[in-house]
Design a protein around this nucleic acid. Structure first.
Length: 642
RNA sequence: GCCGAUGUAGCUCAGGGGUAGAGCGUUUCCUUGGUAAGGAAAAGGUCAGGGGUUCAAUUCCCCUCAUUGGCUCCA
């Protein structure tokens, strides 16, 4: 009996029933047969050795497909486990999945220590095993047999995993000496794994549960070619150069001090000026959009946070209260600005005609983050939010929300963040007691966000269980240099704080009504935003933001006077720059200016001094030639006009 | 907070039981130059902090702090 196989391009071929994926691949071309790693059969990814017995759609995966890579890395994880077992008999294995780049395996080494010193021998062993070309053999097992196997082997983790599996759906995969509980699929055999690198180890709680045993997670990556591994390692090196912590140091933007405390950034003059420019940029836009700036203190009475609900939720896990000589007095460092802003709203009676009231503040807040999760400027304990709270009528929520979305997108556009994702965070439907506020309000808020995002044409992903405890939110996430995703802009609807603070406005009916609150921070925080901006630009900040826009390079001492004159003129036009007065050759000065990423170099020598011109070189090497100083000033003005 | 790694000059790093080294940077002098590194000299260090072992510790051991890769967490 023959079966019809349909390929992704729509072509069809017929084969005898029971033909394997590999045979089908070979019938297409020898090259495909050599490179194919797995296949998709009727929507399911499976081994290439699978026999096809009914009409089906088939797609082949090679290293060039994300699916192919995932299978390759999953198989590599098994190979690593085999190598580890060879060195450490009796080790127990948790899970070993592929990840976005590479794979990991969680291992319980018992009393043995495993660290980066042991990487090399494992890599060597893996290569040796890979060369044998052992097949990955799939075998269905009964649940009883599976349990018996791992009981015999003494692996409690696999036994626990087995508990959740139903009989009949369990398969083992074996390659060489190693057998693992695994759904698959896998590559045909180990031979395509040609380049292997163990990357790092980490402690990882079994099943992500802090209370359970911590296993050693080994991260690694493999490739079918040595050159691809080299390329990958090189890419990692390059990414390191874009790390905002390095750039912040190189460009003298910020620093940390052990004596001030961990996670408490110190902004250096250039960094502070950069941040101020960003703040002014946003302030200007917000003024146009009807925001009013306010200023509130860094501390507030404990009662304020009891009222807001934050104390009950986070009091114990945060910075501890501040006491005054008056023993009844207790203050808290503010972990957010909303309660203060609510009190400002409450300071006068509001009419429906006054709404929306939009209160904005670059508010510095303090949060006790666990020491292990602090990271450069992206995760700190003291930071400044570009915060604002919009108090509006229920009928204005969606419109206000849309305007805020526009504001975020405007910022992303100006700063050329094109690679962002928008995430709608809703309640965890299985754990609703985590949240404060009524069911009805939550539903309304969630609906408003979904609709506003939809009407703005935003491509969003919905995450359940990611909402704040007081309301759902829309977050904008941007990736850093090494692919980690950070939340920047955030917009949150809140029906709860208005209740708790008893916020009201007088409606057209003369009655009191409850306003709705929207929290929003388009940058997220100044710290995190600057960090991500640095990594995005690799330190080559846009001209309007960069600390030093221009450096003037006199060819020799004789032209320093002229260089200073030019600088004076530039400063008159609000152009930021400096003169390199060192006794170095032009080549050296240019090199140093390139390294410090200054956008424009003005070379001033005999000819320029005589004619009142400058010779303009852009960062990166473009020579714009000689021009009048006034022409250059116009050029800068044009480019900084945002 | 937990598991691992790291901490040596302003920066990047080497070294190693007998009180420290390179490159870059800085300062000074020579050089006065044309689009990515001119030459010479000098200054600069409680080898993160504390304790221990030792005749002797920056080096070995322990603790603390900080940084860092993850995990957990993230208002």
């Amino acid at each position: 009996m023959n079966i019809q196989i349909t390929f992704p391009d729509g072509a069809q071929r017929s084969y005898p029933a029971g033909t394997t994926g590999m045979e089908i691949a070979r019938s297409i071309s020898e090259g495909l047969a050599r490179n194919v790693l797995a296949m998709q059969l009727g929507g399911q990814t499976c081994d290439i050795s699978t026999q096809v017995s009914t009409d089906a759609t088939v797609r082949f995966f090679t290293w060039n497909d994300a699916e192919g890579k995932a299978v390759f890395w999953h198989s590599s994880a098994h190979l690593m486990a085999e190598a580890l077992e060879a060195f450490y008999p009796g080790v127990k294995f948790g899970i070993g999945p592929p990840i976005e780049r590479g794979f990991y395996y969680d291992v319980d080494f018992g009393d043995t220590r495993f660290s980066s010193d042991d990487f090399e021998k494992v890599e060597k062993k893996m290569l040796e095993l890979a060369k044998r070309g052992s097949a990955y053999e799939r075998s269905p097992v009964s649940k009883a047999d599976a349990i018996a196997y791992f009981q015999e082997k003494g692996d409690p983790y696999k036994l626990e995993l087995l508990e959740d599996l139903s009989d009949g759906s369990i398969t083992f995969y074996r390659q060489g000496e190693f057998t693992d509980l695994c759904r698959g699929p896998h590559i045909p055999d180990t031979s395509p794994i040609k380049a292997i690198k163990l990357l790092n180890t980490a402690g990882a709680y079994w099943r992500g549960d802090e209370k359970r045993k911590q296993l050693t997670r080994i991260y690694a990556i493999t490739f079918p070619k040595k050159s691809e591994l080299d390329e990958y390692m090189h890419m990692l090196e390059e990414a390191k150069k874009r790390d905002h912590r390095k750039l912040g140091k190189d460009l003298s933007l910020f620093t940390f001090s052990q004596r001030v405390g961990q996670g408490l950034p110190l902004w250096l003059p250039k960094g502070a000026a950069l941040r101020e420019r960003l703040e002014n940029f946003l302030k200007l836009r917000q003024r146009e959009l009807g925001y009013e700036q306010v200023i509130t203190p860094h501390i507030g009475m404990k009662d304020l946070y009891v009222t807001s609900g934050h104390y009950a939720k986070y009091g114990k896990d945060s910075f501890q209260p501040i006491h005054t000589p008056d023993e009844n007095e207790e203050f808290l460092l503010k972990p957010m600005n909303c309660p203060h802003h609510c009190e400002i709203y409450n300071s006068e009676q509001r009419s429906y005609r006054d709404l929306p009231v939009r209160l904005a503040e670059f508010g510095t807040v303090y949060r006790y983050e666990q020491s292990g999760e602090l990271h450069g400027l992206t995760r700190v304990r003291g930071f400044t939010q570009d915060d604002a709270h919009i108090f509006c009528r229920p009928d204005q929520v969606k419109e206000e929300f849309k305007v805020v979305i526009d504001l975020v997108l405007y910022i992303f556009k100006v700063l050329e963040f094109s690679d962002y994702t928008a995430q709608i965070s809703l309640r965890d439907p299985n754990n609703t007691e985590k949240y404060i506020g009524s069911e009805e309000n939550w539903n309304r808020a969630e609906q408003a966000i979904i609709e506003a995002a939809d009407e703005k044409g935003l491509k969003t992903v919905i995450e359940y269980g990611e909402a704040a405890f007081y309301g759902p939110k829309l977050d904008f996430m941007v990736r850093d240099a090494i692919g980690r995703s950070w939340q920047l802009g955030t917009i949150q609807v809140d029906y709860n704080l208005p209740e708790r603070f008893d916020l009201t406005y007088i409606g057209s009916d003369g009655q009191k009504h409850r306003p709705v609150m929207i929290h929003r921070a388009p940058f997220g925080s100044m710290e995190r935003f600057v960090a991500v901006l640095l990594e995005h630009t690799g330190g080559r900040l846009p001209l309007w933001l960069v600390p030093d826009q221009v450096i003037i390079l006199p060819i020799s001492e004789k032209y320093e006077e002229y260089a200073r004159e030019v600088l004076k003129l530039l400063k008159k036009h609000d152009i930021r720059g400096l003169v390199d007065e060192r006794s170095e050759k032009a080549g050296k000065k240019i090199r140093d200016a390139e390294v410090s990423k200054i956008p424009y170099m003005l070379i001033a020598g005999e000819k320029e001094a005589a004619d009142g011109t400058v010779s303009v070189r852009k960062h990166g090497g473009t020579d714009l030639g000689v021009m009048d100083t006034s022409t250059f000033i116009e050029l800068i003005k044009e480019e900084t006009n945002i």
